[in-house]
Amino acid sequence: MVTIRKKLVPDAQANKVTYGKGNSKKYIVVHETDNTRSGADADAHARLQANGNSRSASWHYTVDGKEAVQSFEHAWRCWAAGSNKGNNEGIQVEICVNADGNYLKAVQNTAELVAKIMKDEGIPISNVVQHNHFSGKNCPRNMREGKISWSQFITMVKNASGNTQQPKPSTDDDKYRVLTGTYSTKQAAENVQDVLKHRFGWVAYIEPDGDKYRVKTGTFTGMDAAQAGANKIKTAKLAQVTNIVAE
């Protein structure tokens, strides 16, 4: 079963980018992010929403090859489907298409998530629809172009319907930060900070270390999340060395 993690948008921010609560939850609307940049995974999109998305858009879940991250409870009427009916009656699910991700696994994880939502909310599979259903937009684009066909996806959802138990949540509530190795110039540190903030959607700070500089992230809850953050920094080749420090 796909790991589902919550990083909910605060109500004050949610009220700026939704129609408020009252979603009738009749549909599950499947989208793709269309963001192919490396690092544009579920965590990055969830952090973007939590930190205050400047776009007039919002969605309930983002899914990649590792996890599904929930940004809004189902009651919120998010701005994603391109029509009032789709927004007021739909639970919006975005599939990541980042170049450094695993699209097939992301689609499989989305199928498992959709099966769980169907069970939780009593939504029939006939009401699992594409973004295109409500707005005519070519979304989810890769699926519509046959990279994985819509019929294959629906079959995945049906196959996942018998395995929708939610995994046990982590009990590690401690807070951690990731600290990079040193950079010889402040500009180099600022370049890394810019990627962490604007591509990954993270909070990040620059700290002097003698005549050099380090970049420190905002807090992660749990060692697993912090380790995943450190690995992501290394995979993006932003730092050769990272350290995880407790708050």
Rank of each mutant, 00 (worst) to 15 (best):
Q166D: 13
G39F: 02
N88A: 07
P140V: 02
V2A: 14
D224E: 13
K116D: 06
A75F: 01
L8K: 03
F220H: 05
Q130I: 01
A80I: 00
T242V: 14
V93D: 03
G90Y: 06
S24I: 08
Q92E: 10
Q70D: 08
A228Q: 09
E121M: 11
A115M: 04
K216T: 00
S71Y: 02
R37Q: 04
N88I: 06
K234M: 11
V129R: 07
K168N: 05
N51C: 07
I154L: 11
D100L: 09
M143D: 02
K186C: 01
S135H: 10
V97K: 06
A225D: 12
T36R: 13
E190V: 00
F72D: 00
D194Y: 10
K216A: 01
H133G: 00
Q49N: 10
V30D: 04
D100V: 08
K105H: 06
Y19P: 14
T182E: 12
K6P: 09
N231F: 08
T219E: 12
F153Q: 08
A228E: 13
Y61P: 00
K137N: 03
S58W: 13
N98L: 11
G22R: 10
S161G: 03
N23Y: 03
N53D: 14
N15S: 14
I233P: 01
G86Y: 08
A12P: 07
W79H: 06
W202Q: 07
G52C: 14
Y61N: 04
H133C: 00
N53L: 15
V2L: 14
G22Q: 10
V215T: 05
P167K: 14
S38H: 07
N159F: 13
A57W: 15
R177M: 12
E32Q: 12
L238D: 03
R77I: 04
H74K: 04
A46D: 02
A46G: 02
A57C: 15
H74A: 07
G65T: 09
M156N: 09
E190G: 00
